[in-house]
């Protein structure tokens, strides 16, 4: 058996399947160790992106996740004329991410609190919100309402999905309307913003949480740097539209490192648990 030597002579760089360079501190990180550390740099705590399904595994009580609408897929309502047909893009995204669309929804326990959860996957066409994302989140919100569960949505999205045109835009209104019913029923909604949360997703449900928490260093903003550049010919300053900036300007409650996210959510959900005082012991 031949051992592969990462530092063998003649090799100019680290083999990328074994090592990743941290964009935060430049440190070379061994991939296995990076995964074990929840995709967070061991030396500077830079948070790499994290998949939608891993996120659910990270947040919910072990084995408690029950997925909903896992088979739902996108149609091509506009018959979108593109350099590459929309169904082909979907197929490619499915292969890349292993998911059917950009969100995973279902019921789970978080810190023993029965919760409805939606987790977005950035690997699926940039986590973009089309009909499937709209429908799945709306349904999970409606089910949360029916069973009186709090709702947690973890966002990771570039915004609305262009290939579904105005239909994608209307998903914003659809989800927000469903969240409104949840709010009317006094049920908590916690929004978790991860890298990146921008565009139509931030301009709808992601900004409407009773509590909004973000991961450190996540890109959080309404318009992309390119749009700003094109529209007003101004370059955005560095550090702009990051979690720390958004916290400073008062639009989120906390920045929570990935390793603490689960416990923090459990704390909030338990605090909001709709239980009458005299019933507390019977549960």
């Amino acid at each position: 058996m031949r051992l592969r030597m990462p530092f063998a002579r003649g090799r100019k760089e680290f083999p990328s399947h074994l090592w990743t360079q941290c964009p935060g501190c430049g440190e070379m990180l061994f991939n296995k160790q990076l995964v074990r550390n929840l995709n967070v740099c061991t030396s500077c705590e830079h948070h790499f992106r994290f998949g939608g399904r891993e996120r659910i595994e990270l947040l919910v009580d072990r084995g408690s996740f029950e997925e909903h609408d896992s088979e739902m897929t996108s149609a091509d309502p506009l018959v979108f004329a593109d350099s590459k047909p929309y169904p082909t893009r979907i197929e490619a995204a499915r292969a890349k991410s292993g998911e059917q669309d950009a969100v995973i929804t279902g019921f789970a326990l978080i810190g023993e609190v029965p919760t409805a959860i939606a987790s977005m996957d950035f690997d699926f066409i940039g986590g973009s919100m089309g009909s499937v994302v709209g429908e799945k989140i709306t349904r999970v919100a409606e089910r949360a309402l029916a069973e009186r569960r709090p709702l947690v949505i973890v966002s990771a999205s570039g915004g609305a999905r262009m290939q579904e045109g105005t239909i994608a835009l209307m998903q914003m209104a659809k989800i927000v309307a469903a969240l409104g019913r949840l709010a009317d029923a006094g049920l908590p909604f916690v929004s978790v913003l991860t890298d990146p949360t921008t565009g139509g997703v931030l301009a709808s449900y992601a900004s409407l949480g009773d509590l909004i928490v973000a991961e450190p260093g996540a890109l959080i903003g309404f318009s992309g740097a390119r749009v700003t550049d094109q529209t007003i010919g101004e370059k955005l300053p560095t550090g702009f539209q990051r979690s720390e900036f958004v916290l400073e300007h008062g639009f989120i409650d906390q920045i929570v490192p990935r390793a603490q996210l689960r416990d923090r959510l459990a704390f909030f959900l338990t605090a909001f648990r709709p239980v009458a005082h005299d019933m507390r012991w019977s549960l």
Binding site: D69, E71, M72, T73, S74, A75, P77, S131, V132, G134, E135, T138, E164, I167, M170, Q171, A173, K174, A177, A178
Partner: peptide, 11 residues
């Protein structure tokens, strides 16, 4: 009205 907007495929 807004709930009805969206086209998805379900088995």
């Amino acid at each position: 009205r807004f709930r009805a907007i969206g086209v998805v495929v379900e088995p």
